[in-house]
Structure formats: structure tokens, C-alpha cells
Amino acid sequence: MTELHLNNVSFSYPDGTKALENLTLSIATGERVAIVGQNGAGKTTAVKLMNGLLKPTEGTVLVGDWNTKDFTTAQVSRKVGYVFQNPDDQIFHNDVESEVRFGPKNMGFEPERVDELTHWAMDLCGISEFADENPYNLPYSVRKFVTIASVLAMDSDIIILDEPTAGQDKIGLQILGNLLQVLEEKKKSVITITHDMEFVTDYFTRIVVMANRQLVADDNAQKIFYNTEVLEKSMLKPPAVAQMAKLLDFPSGILSKGQLIKVILSQRGQ
């Protein structure tokens, strides 16, 4: 049970470059949130503040009742697991299973629990068949799943996925979708950065939109993808279904393929 609170958080790099301005955001236990926005909007900075990789220059980040300023990244990462955007920044073992096993082992869990978590995470990420492979022999998209499994195996309450959809094919997207369901059942909070708006509408109701280092909107998908002002400000492209619905002059609010098909069929009296 860990809530996450960012209160008026700003971050500047030592050279003065501002990366995030005045972000206030709360994420409840077990909640699933998508963060979207242009490259350079501050998304990755925001999530790195959540797991203590970065400490705020102003404001406070509370993980449960911990102020991240008072704890080391190693301590915070027991509660908030972060999967790096680039898998190659994260992987350092010669085979997949050792990579996944490292986290739970390092947490000091009992050997049985380490085993259990390692296998659970590898299965969930669809990489069990590669257990003995060197991660660098695997395609980028599969390496990404190796890094996701490594973080899931640490069993933290909050999990952050930084662009898990990048380079994923249809099968990869299905694995991700399933993984989100399983994590929800386990009451994990999951924060996902993605550029894939179809993935967002398929699996997320709460969407946080960022632009120019600031929060632009924090709302449900219908409100965001049919809000011209938010879309323009954040330079977001609505999902294909919303664009098709608009071209067909349908009333606003349609986001999923199923909804669109239903409206088309009903108009044809089917």
C-alpha cells in the first residue's frame, strides 16, 4: 500500500536547465496512469523524481510517508521500480535469468521467494524460453521485456514503465496489455510513459498530459482526446479511432474500435 504524491515539484539540472516545473500529482494505491506528451515534455524527468533517481529542486515527492529527499535511491527503489527507456542502460548480466533474479536476490528475499518471483516475472513478460540466452542476442523489443521482468521481480508496490511500447509488435503489445491486468489484480500502481495512443485508449482511463515541462491535463481519455485545446497545447495526435469518428462526423467521445463499429452498425440498422 503505497501512495505517491508530488507537491509543486520542480527540477533543474546543475547547469540551470529546467526540466520540470511545478508538478502536482497524486497516484493512489493500485491505480494505472498513462503519461503522454511530446519528446522533451518532462515525462522521464517526472518519473525519475518518483523513484528517487532525481531529487526535486523545489517541492516534495512523497512515496508513502517517505520524502524522497531523506532516502537514497536504493531505498526508494524498493517501493518504486523504474524500467528505463533504453534497455541497454539497465541490463548487465550475461543471461536473462540472472538479470531478472538479481533484483529480488539483492532485496534479500528468501531463496524460494526469489525463485518464485523470477519465474513469475519471466512468464508474465513472455521471456521464459530465453532464460539462458545472453540478453544482447535478443531483439531490442525482447530486451525491453527482460528489463520489465527484472523490475517486476522486485515486487515493488509502484512500477514505472518508460516507453514499453517502443518497437513492440502486435504480440508484444498483447503481452503488455495482459501484464497490466495482472498487476492491477495484484494492486500494484503502474505509471506508463508511451507515445502509442491506441495503447493508451485500450488500457488506461486516467491520462496525464505534459508539455513544455508542465502538466497540461490530468483527466480521463474521453475528455482528453476530444479536447482541442489540450491536444493543440501538447501537440498530441488523438488515436486513429477518434480521427475516423471525426471524419465520419460522429458525436464526440468514441475512442475504441468496438465503439466505432457499434455506431457504424447502428446507423445502418444492423
Binding site: 491506441e198 479511432v241 475516423m244 474500435k257 463499429i261 457504424i264 445502418r268
Partner: peptide, 17 residues
């Protein structure tokens, strides 16, 4: 993956449209 519009069209076709 299909283009999203193609996926929708094929589903409509299966449903008799």
C-alpha cells in the same frame, strides 16, 4: 498489426457490412 482503419473495416465486413 493492420492499419487501424483496415482492422475496423475487416471487422465490419465480418459482421456483414
Amino acid at each position: 498489426q493492420y492499419p487501424h482503419v483496415t482492422e475496423i473495416a475487416l471487422q465490419l465486413q465480418k459482421l456483414g457490412t
